[in-house]
Structures are given as C-alpha cells and as structure tokens.
C-alpha cells in the first residue's frame, strides 16, 4: 500500500474535527494574548479584525471595498497564471518528449530557473510600465517555472514498458503520445500547477505592494504606511483564505481527473 501518514485521527469527520479545534485554539490564544498581555499594544484582536473585515465589505478601504480589492488581485492572478499554464505545459512536454526540445530548451531553462519571479519586477516595470501588464508578467514568470519543471519530469518519467505495451497493441507515435505520455504525466502536471498557483498568488501580493492602487497587497502596504495594524491583518487574513480556497479548488479538480490513483474499494 502507498505511504499513508500514521492515522491518529482516523475517519474523515475526525480529521475535520481536529482541524476546527486547532483553528479555534489558535484564535482563542490570539484573543487571550491581545486581551491580557503586551501583545495587545502591537496587535488587534481577531474579533476586531473580523469586525473590520465585515465592515470593509460596505465601507471602502481607499477607493474600493474589500471584495473588490480581492477581485482585483484574483483577476491578476488568474490571467498571469493561465498564461503560465498555457506556456508551461507545452514547454515542459516539448522538453520531456523530444530529445531535440530537451537539448535546446533545457540549458536556457536551467539559467532562468534559479531566478525568483520577484527578481523580474524591475525589468517588468521597465518593459511594461507600472500598469497591469507588468503584474501579469511577474505572476506568469513566477508560476511558469514549477509548471515547466514538473511537466518535464512527468513526460520524462513515462514507464517504457507501458510505451512498449501500447506499441504492441498497435499504437503509432501520435497515439502513444496522446494515450500514454499525456495521461501518465497528469499527476506530475498537477503537482506543478499546485506549486505554480501558490507562487502566482505570492507574486501578485508582492507586485501590488510595490506599485498599485488596489488589491490585497495594496491593503497591506497602505496599512503599513498609515500604521493601521487592523488593515494590515485584513490583507493578510484575506490572502490566507483566498490562497486556501484556490488550492482546494485545484485539488478537487485533480481528484476528479485522477480517480484512477485512489486506492481502496
């Protein structure tokens, strides 16, 4: 059987219970620290933050309400990320499936690989200005690296026995590619999509913190400029929740596409 973590928390409901209890514990400790210790002088309580978040759905922070800020950040992420997916998967497959592709692309890729997406910010601003395009670019670059890398590894690690089996059943090169190489790379591709998604979510925050007039990153920076810790925390909590939701959506899609990997009857 596959590697499973030692199950202290057995069933699914138990896992959920533990998660809820842990989160509740975290917020209670935070609340108590703010109420009874010096932490209260530098941090608002979770109740204050939640109240402020609810309030900011109606009263704008700067020129926009909180949901609008979040939508702005989300739009940037989705555009940049989709670009990265559209570029990353084909490039990874070219590298993994074709020796010529590997020979040409791999050396170039290896130079770009260690450069973090955020190091592209200055160039992006010089090339595309401070508008939306530079943000898309930064997000795309940040996400593309891990998507390319994982897709490449997936395409590369196709079991040669399965390729042989498909050939023995009459598959031609194209059919081997479509019916063996691609499906067997899917789990790797998803691993890349997952890492890429969190990189692009981080990149949008950084891009907005440097230059923007709306978005979750902007909320944090302006909160810092005005010494408003509640506003900073609103930004941080929103980032945490949205990131979690995006990752879960992607995991749901993966589960659907990869039912064949789930063990048990």
């Amino acid at each position: 059987m596959s590697s499973r973590s030692i199950s202290i928390a057995g069933s699914r409901t138990e896992v959920v219970l533990y998660a809820v209890a842990a989160l509740a514990g975290f917020f209670i400790v935070w609340q108590l620290l703010v109420m009874y210790t010096a932490v209260g002088m530098v941090m608002p309580s979770p109740i204050e933050v939640v109240e402020a978040m609810v309030a900011s759905c109606a009263d704008p922070i700067g020129s926009k309400t909180l949901p609008m800020h979040i939508l702005f950040s989300l739009r940037r992420v989705l555009i940049g990320y989709l670009l990265a997916v559209l570029i990353g998967i084909p490039v990874g497959i070219l590298m993994g499936c074709f020796q010529v592709g590997e020979a040409i692309i791999k050396p170039v890729f290896e130079i770009f690989r260690p450069i973090p997406g955020l190091a592209w910010i200055p160039l992006a601003i010089l090339w595309f200005g401070i508008g939306e395009e530079s943000k898309y670019f930064i997000i795309c670059v940040s996400a593309a690296v891990s998507i390319i890398l994982n897709t490449y590894e997936g395409a590369k690690s196709v079991d040669p026995t399965l390729v042989g089996a498909a050939r023995m059943l009459g598959a031609n090169d194209f059919q081997v590619f479509v019916f063996v190489t691609i499906p067997s790379s899917v789990p790797h591709i998803f691993a890349g999509l997952q890492v890429g998604l969190s990189s692009s979510w981080m990149a949008v925050i950084a891009a907005e913190m440097i230059r923007s007039s709306e978005g979750t990153g902007w909320i944090i920076t302006t909160g810092m400029d005005s010494g408003n810790t509640v506003q900073i925390l609103i930004g941080m909590v929103s980032i945490g929740f949205i990131g979690l939701i995006l990752a879960s959506l992607l995991r749901g899609l993966e589960k659907k596409l990869c039912t064949w990997r789930i063990q048990g009857r």
Binding site: T161, G170, F179, W260
Partner: peptide, 24 residues
C-alpha cells in the same frame, strides 16, 4: 504480449484497457 509486471494502463478502466488495441 502479457507482461511479467502486468503493464496495464493505470489511468484506464478494465474495459478501456481491454479495448485499447481495437481503439488504436
């Protein structure tokens, strides 16, 4: 060929594995 280590396509159901040749 019937393989030592089965070599089934893990992403295909039993019927799709069996029908792979005819589908090709």
């Amino acid at each position: 060929v019937v393989y030592q280590k089965t070599a089934l396509f893990p992403w295909l159901s039993v019927q799709s594995n069996v029908g792979f040749g005819p589908m090709m």
